[in-house]
Amino acid sequence: MPVNLKVFRYDPDKGEKPYFRSYQVEAEPSDRLLDCLNRIRWEQDPTLSFRMSCGHGVCGSDGMRINGICGLPCQKLVSVLGAGEVLVEPLPVFRVIKDLVVDLDPFFERYRSLKPYLITGTPVPEKERGQSPEEHGAFADAVRCILCACCTASCPVNQDKETDGYVGPAALVRAFRYLFDSRDDGSSARIDLLDRKEGAWGCRTLWKCTEVCPKQIPVTKEIGRIKKRMYGAKQEKT
């Protein structure tokens, strides 16, 4: 079946303004939108740029805006795209480098700012640090995060120039993952970073992150649990 795509194009080297170009490719209903984009590149227009790697929602490199909603083209089958022209744009919030490729350096800087690693206060044990399945279950959903940036790009707080200093849902999911890890001793350092308006309080509970998450992580609920934890820590202090 023919699939029609309207794709955002921008090449800074050519000194031109961004524009949309339409393509038509032949595809099976079971093909991914990613297959269609590759087919454009391989068979019609090799100048089209977009990131991709694993092709099945594990690497998180092909986040883009599909018919206005952020998602992974490797997870969207032609059969669910509908009949009309498919609008393909780069992720919002981030600066476009070329076509569908955006600059994710600020995204990863913010992610790193929340110490996305285990902080321990005890000596390294001879074997691994143990954890029960129940303890792991407390943050197991968050481990699924593939850092595709779809949540942060979809967040109205991040999209608003007035509030775009907000660290964003993806970084908070990772903060949640360590804050609720039974092996982690870094909660006071973490809470210091989170307890500010650019931190977890930046979240206005608008649920856009949860709606778009390709790994179905309950992002908004996890941010809510961070807020509760910070509130609890404050109560203890007073």
């Binding site: 090449d11 800074p12 080297d13 050519k14 590149r41 090799p46 100048t47 740029s49 977009f50 480098i97 070329k98 076509d99 490729v101």
Partner: peptide, 12 residues
Amino acid sequence: AILDKGRTFNYE
């Protein structure tokens, strides 16, 4: 043949 002569994110 390399048809994309650009230097930015040249996947070809």
